[in-house]
Write a protein that binds this DNA or RNA. Structure first.
Lengths: 192, 192
DNA sequence: GACTCCTTCCTACGGTCCATAGGTTTCAGC
DNA sequence: GCTGAAACCTATGGACCGTAGGAAGGAGTC
């Protein structure tokens, strides 16, 4: 029997592809094994459990999005920087719904610390650097950005913006207004 | 064998309690049946499937939160109204994590239309009424509020605000700043 | 080129759960 | 007491997770 050449990384990658195709909650080890042409238990050499496989999708997606955000942020500041970060998440959530959902998984402290999460925090701080905020205010701003962008992506993914009347404004239009709002808020962010 | 007296409503209520205790993803029909002292298949008289049970938790939670928001909004406007709506969601997400998670489930169009979702949209519109926005801008504002509050609750629930350094500002403090930001944005929300 | 041994991958298995099929019992109303 | 519609049951099949223990591929050694 020829060996397939499984590795932890290849399993994680396949899990990510599968997640995008069928949704993160349908990423089963059975389906992954079938995709590799391998018996289910063989995967346990490379992944500890089903939950572990999903966490690895999250780590992979966090790395990917961090790279995308870093690239999008190059050479821009102010509202453009906000649009860059928000745009990456919005586009990623549409293009890779399973991976995006994985980024919303709660990670334990050690895993979170060694993930690209801290890099995301750094990138967000960089995105608001142009607004010349203090240390603490920058933290608040990073949280505001994270909450807004992820909340927006989540509502969009859940179809919440499509449940209204047909003449309602488009999600794109609302997103521009959201960026306007964030920009205005950060521009005149007087310290309390 | 004495009958337990199951009804769809009682099953949904039990599912909600269970969801808060063990998490929405662990709401199994087996666990529900055990809680009632009943065989698993007996539940199918009242609920179509496991997914149906979870959707019913969502509908129940949307009703509950709509009532809470309506009560919190009574007699307030402006920033206080924003704080009222946001405060309800934040408190609910902490007090009823399983129910809250259920409110994030995607619903099909018919279910969404007959849920308390439209009432939530109406309530949010009422919350921003004091800012005297136009029809379209009000829609944008409602989306902004929804995205921000739910994104914030999600990040908080995922522990994203606890992964930072120990001297980072509290989640409560950031939330106040978020309210400030939303208030400032809506106050000077010039039409494009 | 045969040997060794680590690793990969296998079969076999037990357990939990969802969901359907079809029978039995409870109980309200007559 | 009778009847019929429920509620609730047992039996069953199927999907999946995860463990145990064995067989086989293949890299490195002599």
């Amino acid at each position: 029997m020829p060996r397939v050449g499984l590795t932890t990384a290849r399993v994680a990658e396949a899990a990510a592809v599968l997640a995008d195709e069928v949704g993160l909650e349908h990423v089963t080890l059975a389906a992954l094994a079938q995709r590799f042409g391998v018996a289910t238990p063989s995967l346990y050499t490379h992944v500890r459990s089903q939950a572990d496989a999903r966490v690895r999708v999250a780590l992979l997606a966090l790395e990917e999005t961090a790279d995308l955000v870093a690239a999008a942020l190059a050479g821009v500041s102010g509202r453009d920087a906000l649009a860059a970060v928000g745009g990456v998440w919005r586009a990623y959530a549409v293009a890779h719904p399973g991976r995006y959902a994985a980024t919303r998984l709660p990670l334990d402290a050690a895993t979170a610390a060694s993930s690209a999460g801290p890099r995301h925090a750094e990138l967000s701080r960089a995105a608001v650097r142009g607004y010349r905020l203090g240390e603490v205010d920058a933290t608040h701003a990073v949280r505001l950005l994270g909450a807004t962008f992820h909340g927006y992506a989540a509502l969009d993914a859940a179809g919440a913006f499509g449940h209204g009347p047909p003449d309602a404004p488009s999600s794109d239009a609302s997103f521009e207004r959201v960026l306007d709002g964030l920009h205005a808020t950060l521009t005149s962010w007087e310290t309390r």
